[in-house]
Structure formats: C-alpha cells, structure tokens
C-alpha cells in the first residue's frame, strides 16, 4: 500500500512539474541577455524588462487593459450586486430563467461572444471600439461578480437585515450599514476574480481592436507573431507576479474553495 502511495506521489509530482515547469522556464528566459529566447539563458540581464517600457504599444495597451478591467469591473458591480442580492434574497417566479441569463456569458464560447459583439455592438449599435471593449468586458465579468457575491450572500442570515429594519433603518440604509459590511470580503474577492478574467481575456478583446485601441494580451499575441525576443517572457513574469498577489488576497478573503466548487 505504501508503495502505491509512493507511486501516486511521484505521479502527482510529475503532473505539477508539467503544470509549473513551463512557467518556471519562461521566467528564466526573461533574463536572457541575447535577443533570442533561450533556455537555459546565457547570462543575466534586465534588458528585456526595460524593453517593455520602451515599446510604446505595451504601455498604451496596458493602460487600456487596466482601464477596461477596472471600469468594467465597477459597471459589473453596479449591475451585479443588486441582481445577486435579489436572486439570493427573494423567491419569485422566473428566478431560474434569470439565474440562467446572468450565468450564460460563461456558457457561450468566448470567441462567439466576441464576434457577435463586433457585429452588433460595434457595427449595428455603432459604439466606438473603446466603448465596445468596455461593454464586452462588463458582460464577461458580470457572471463572476454575481456568482461570488451570491455565494457570500448564501451564508448571510437575512434575519440580520430584518433586525436593522425593526430598529428603524430604511431598506437602503440597511443594505449599506448591515448587508454590505458583512459581504465585504466576498465583494473584494469578486472584484479580483473578475479582474483576472477580464485582464487576461483574449476571446472578446481580439475582435475589439482598432486604430490605437487594443488590450495587452492582444498586443502580446501580435508581438509574438513578429518577434521572438524575450520581451514577452519578461511581461509574462510581471503578469504572473500580479496573478500570484491577487490570488493570495483572494485566498485570504474567502479561501480557495470557490475554485473547487462547481
């Protein structure tokens, strides 16, 4: 039996080597001093990290990505918090259908969503590309916001809300003074999870590019097509650091069980 466990342990180690190895390799190659990606690197240099800041498109698209992910997040919160609250708090006819609608953006293939939005949001509704990008990312984030907040509301005893009402608080006052403070960590986790989904998105953004408008992942894709220097590796390292920090905060706020539940 011990032996079988040892075999399993070895197998699992190999699985994790497969999962994390490439990410470690990419990190090493980012310090390559030469202009061709190599592993192991032939020296150590910050050169390609500096290069990120010299390529103007990286800076512009980074700003666009940040703006879209943060502002879209805000929009998704404004739309999503009331919806998550209504869906958790009340029973009413058509609740199942509404739940379905709010979750559907994760069910529809991203590339299909991107194309449909290009066709209608940009062409038919005639919104500027920047606005289309923002709208697309808001739609993308909404199900994550609603799901995480609804799951944190599912632990909330709504008698607490009634207690506040009976003590003289109005509905809105109750929400801000009693409900919101108690689901705060859920909301922050929702913001971070949605942010990562949006910031890393390719499927929708790839259709929403235009003169001077593009997101960082799309710019990275374009860059890879024409260059094979370690700049992308350097950006990758920065993105992984950002991911690790956000993931750490999410873990502190609500543990990682959100990811294992389905």
């Amino acid at each position: 039996m011990q032996e079988k466990n040892r075999g399993l342990a070895l197998f699992t180690s190999l699985v994790f080597l497969f999962l994390l190895g490439p990410l470690i390799i990419i990190s090493f190659t980012s310090f390559e001093p030469g202009s061709v990606l190599k592993f192991p690197p032939e020296g150590f240099s910050w050169r390609w990290y500096e290069n990120i800041f010299n390529v103007e498109m990286f800076m512009t698209t980074f700003k666009t990505s940040m703006f879209v992910s943060l502002f879209g997040n805000l929009l998704a919160l404004l739309l999503g918090i009331p919806a998550a609250y209504a869906l958790s708090r009340f029973d009413f006819r058509g609740k199942g259908i509404l739940n379905g609608i709010f979750i559907s953006p994760v069910l529809i293939p991203g590339i299909v969503m991107g194309f449909a939005m290009l066709k209608y949001v940009i062409v038919v509704y005639n919104l500027p590309i920047y606005a289309g990008l923002l709208v697309g990312h808001t739609v993308l984030m909404l199900p994550f916001i609603i799901r995480v907040i609804a799951s944190s509301l599912s632990n909330f005893d709504f008698a607490i809300e009634e207690a506040a009402l009976s003590l003289g608080a109005g509905r809105l006052e109750t929400f801000f003074k009693v409900v919101l403070p108690n689901i705060r960590s859920g909301i922050i986790a929702a913001i971070l999870i949605a942010f990562l989904e949006s910031f890393n998105n390719v499927d929708i953004s790839v259709f929403m590019t235009g003169p001077g408008v593009s997101t960082l992942p799309i710019q990275m894709l374009t860059y890879v097509e024409n260059n094979f220097d370690p700049t992308i590796a350097a950006i990758s390292v920065l993105l992984m650091i950002l991911t690790a920090i956000l993931m750490f905060i999410i873990e502190r706020l609500m543990g990682l069980s959100y990811f294992t539940k389905r």
């Binding site: 005893d157 008698a159 607490i160 009634e162 207690a163 506040a164 009693v178 403070p181 108690n182």
Partner: peptide
C-alpha cells in the same frame, strides 16, 4: 429573533 440576528461586524 430566533437566530438572535446580531450584526456580526
């Protein structure tokens, strides 16, 4: 309330 419903925060 039965559950006391104190404000946890």
């Amino acid at each position: 309330f039965q559950s006391y419903a104190l404000f946890p925060h």
